[in-house]
Design a protein around this nucleic acid. Sequence first.
DNA 1: AATTATTTTTAGATTTGTCTAAAATATATT
DNA 2: AATATATTTTAGACAAATCTAAAAATAATT
Lengths: 220, 220
Amino acid sequence: MTNFSVSEENYIKSIYHLQQDTHTVNTNSLAVEMNTKPASVTDMLKKLKQKKILQYEKYKGFRLNENGKKIALTVVRKHRLWEFFLANNLGFEWDKVHAIAEELEHISSQELIQKLDNYLGNPSFDPHGDPIPDKHGNIPHLKQRCLAIAPINKTLIVSSVTNQTAEMLDMLKHYKIKIGSSLKIIRHFTFDGSMEIRLLKNAACVISDPVAKNVFVHYD
Amino acid sequence: MTNFSVSEENYIKSIYHLQQDTHTVNTNSLAVEMNTKPASVTDMLKKLKQKKILQYEKYKGFRLNENGKKIALTVVRKHRLWEFFLANNLGFEWDKVHAIAEELEHISSQELIQKLDNYLGNPSFDPHGDPIPDKHGNIPHLKQRCLAIAPINKTLIVSSVTNQTAEMLDMLKHYKIKIGSSLKIIRHFTFDGSMEIRLLKNAACVISDPVAKNVFVHYD
DNA sequence: AATTATTTTTAGATTTGTCTAAAATATATT
DNA sequence: AATATATTTTAGACAAATCTAAAAATAATT
Ligand SMILES: [Mn+2]
Ligand SMILES: [Mn+2]
Ligand SMILES: [Mn+2]
Ligand SMILES: [Mn+2]
């Protein structure tokens, strides 16, 4: 496990996230994800292959090998621990933490991240409800279910949010939906797939199907 | 106040520190300080001059102008706040914080550093006793005096340490001398300039002149 | 199967930050 | 003042990360 540049780490992390969905990642989607040009992606792919981090055959797509995944997980771990710190200790709103963690995740000290982890109380989930890998790369798993298909009239706990754009988070803030919020589904509307919900100690409200599709919950 | 790269920020900070002593800084000393080659320094000087941060005439030395000093102070502020966090909150020893803060000082968010400052309780001094500039660049000043020439038999408070190498800090740790320690000078030895001191609740001990020259104290 | 469109890679250029070796300037010594 | 030494700058090269434009490979459509 050599040393990786900021740029390499960003590529590795993005590939990791993309290959969760698409089993084999292609050049264009990575270019979109990284806000760069396909030619630049190809250059980096060659480098990562040479560093024995990546399975890659020209024109055939690519994915991280075990070494690559390990590196990705350390970056993800750092990202989410810093996000937790920013939200929980410094009081940042959850839609502001990502951009800053994007820089902090590249600080290299192992000892720092271990001490930070302990200082924060070894949290398992970041402010968006995403799991924080432990120092061995193990990811805590929470069986969660999309709010759109969750059972009616049962107490549900919001566990994560897929779409983490500022627009989405602004919307959730309006409804006072946060990670950890308790809510019940009162009824569905078949007309547009919207649903009426009630948050603990709040009046009932109606959320649209696109919103419900982005919210994940767990229950006992 | 444009945006500066990590490398530029490091140069700016080093120039700032050097020009505290030598009123006009020269290429070679900056090269030594930055662990680089004089030719690289010259290249950077041209760039910083062009960015209107630096007073610089070929072959005649250089120094930061007011704009440059302002930028230097924001970097110093970030560096020392992070050092405080690392020592005070995460429990790092004071000889481990510098290297990590050298990376953290380049995180760009203004809001982050302001929230961190508040979270830490707006500290005035870092773990080495160096003053932390406030958000306007004002530096808290503590009239301190070198231990080597401090008055005998008076209660002295250790306020800072000039030489912050691991070797020096290792030595101070052995004597249990920390920032904030109370001590009295018992006597001087003219033979080698060493002195006998006694730390609060400790046996007396003898420290060498080079050690005493690096420790600064204040008293009422 | 041939043609068209899309995706991916290559070739060559650019910017940033660094380096070595040589040239220019300034300083010190005889 | 002339010469030697030290310091600083320039010239030219290189690695990393990016880009544009063109070429090559793959996929989709007639
Ligand atoms: Mn990043
Ligand atoms: Mn997150
Ligand atoms: Mn630095
Ligand atoms: Mn310090």
